[in-house]
Each structure stands twice: as structure tokens, then as C-alpha cells.
Nucleic acid binder design. Sequence first.
DNA 1: TTCAAAATCACCCGAAAGTATGAAGGCAAT
DNA 2: ATTGCCTTCATACTTTCGGGTGATTTTGAA
Lengths: 152, 152
Amino acid sequence: MLKYKHILLYGFSLAMLLFLLKWLQLRFIIIDHAFEIYIGIIAALFTGLGIWLALKLAKPKVEKVIVEKEIYIEKGNGFTRNERALRQLNLSPRELDVLELMAAGLTNQEIAGRLFVSLNTVKTHSMNLFEKMDVARRTQAVAKARELSIIP
Amino acid sequence: MLKYKHILLYGFSLAMLLFLLKWLQLRFIIIDHAFEIYIGIIAALFTGLGIWLALKLAKPKVEKVIVEKEIYIEKGNGFTRNERALRQLNLSPRELDVLELMAAGLTNQEIAGRLFVSLNTVKTHSMNLFEKMDVARRTQAVAKARELSIIP
DNA sequence: TTCAAAATCACCCGAAAGTATGAAGGCAAT
DNA sequence: ATTGCCTTCATACTTTCGGGTGATTTTGAA
């Protein structure tokens, strides 16, 4: 739409110029060197027109400015589990259960009661999770799990 | 530098065109309507020149597109100890030391090494702090201390 | 100075936690 | 069907923890 408008304008101004030229031709025909002046005017006018056209029609260069926006995660409010770290540890669901109850301060016997399994099973799970987390004690496991945002 | 170069080029091409025009004038003087053709050529040429000049000299139109890139940053150590809760518990400095090292996952033996005291001393401190915190195990003590924001 | 709390350490004992090993059933992928 | 992992449980053993009791020394406040 806009481009056609420009082209029409261009054609119109060209026609007007031809009119102007005819008129000038009649007026300055007597003057010597009138032709050169005439050509100069035309050249200047059309150069200006070209410049104007170019400025109007030129595609603007698009420059992407990437603004880095810092977003701080509230650690106190909503706790979001670090799923990446959790996956990297490769804990089984049961082991995670045990870990969470450990973090809550329950004894192995209490954990066994909660999960409806035997004490020995809890011990096995805890052993396996200690190995996976590369720790030796439940308190260490809890501390590390907290660091990794696996538990609140 | 570059701008002057362009202007010189502009002047040169203008001179060349005048030459060309003179020649054309001689050649096509016989043809009727030659003048209009001639003007048209000039107009076209100088329009082109104007466009070329504009594109070369004009500041490139820059359209800034701001892309917001979100960077998530862990909120660094926004922990403030709950002094009220700590005072209510009435823990002695030494007991608090033991509690902190417990939370870090150390054994009583390791805590003893850190604090340059005997294992028995650490046991006594831990016993006393368990009583003051009304818990029975170190894991419970750590969990409760975290709830009360006594430790991070 | 006296007194209470804190800090230190010791010994003992039972409970809890952790280590090592084995084993059986289930389930999913190959 | 074989393999690997999860889950479950067991036995036996060691280490750590927690609880009780008692003692000495230091220190700050009355």
C-alpha cells in the first residue's frame, strides 16, 4: 500500500516536472546556456527525489539487543525441588521417601513404620542412598540434600 | 574521508553526464521528442544516483528489538538467624557450635576434633542441647533448628 | 567472695545407625 | 529369555549415638 503510494507520488512528481520543464523551456529559451542550468536543476531535483525515495523505502536494519534480566528465585517462600540434581543422583522413589523422612528427623524404626516395611529394608534403602549420594551418615545425606534443594 | 570520496565521485559522475549529454545532444538532435527521452534518462540516472547516495551516506535505520533473556540466579545467602527463637531455647555458645556442626553432617568424633575437645565433651553438649530443644536425636535437632531458622 | 552456669572430661550401657552379604520376587527393556 | 534395577527382607557384626551419672575447672554475676 505505502509502496504503491510512493510510486504514484514518484510518477506524479515526474509528470509535474515535465510540465515545469516545458514551461522553463518556453521562458528561458532565449537565454544562452539555459540548457545546462536546466539539466542541473533536473539533476538536482531527481537526486533529491532519489534520496527521499531511498530514505523512505529503505528497509530498516534490525538490530537485536539482548537484555539480560536477572530473576532472583525466592528461596524462603516457595520451595521448588531441583529435579535436575535429583535425577543426577538417580535415587529410586523408595530411597527418596526414606531420605525425606530422615530429613524430618525420624529414626529408621519410625521410617519403617511409616512406609510399612521392615527395619532391615529401611537400612538397605538408606545404605543404597548413602552410596548414591556419596555420604556416610544420615545427617550428611540430609545436609547434602538440602544443599542440592532436593528437600526444603 | 569516505564522505569526501563520495562527493568527488558525485561531482565526477555529474561532469561525465554533462559530457554524455553533449554527445547525445549532437547525436539525437535530429530525432523528434529526443528531448523528452533525454530528460527521462537524466531523471532516471539522477534518481538512481540519489538512491545510491542516500543508501551510502545515510545513517542506517536501526530498529532495536529488545529481547529479554531471563537469567535465574540462586538467591545468595539471604539467611538471617532467628535470634528470638535462639534466645528462647537458651542454648549456650558451645552447644550452638555443636548444633551447627551436627547440621553439617559431622559425627560427634569429628565435632570433637573441630572444637578441640574430647568426644565425651561433645556428647555432654549434645545431650544438653537435645534436652533444651526437647528432641531425642541429632537429626530431629537439626530439623527443628532449621524450622526455627536457627541454622540455614 | 560465693554461687550458678558453662565447659570440660570420664565411664558405662543400651539403642540406633551403619556395613557387608545374601536372597527372592517384580517389572521393564532388549 | 536374559539382564538390570527396584523393592523387600534377613543375619551378623561394628560403629556411633544417646542417656545416666559424676567430676573438675573456669567464668561471670550477685
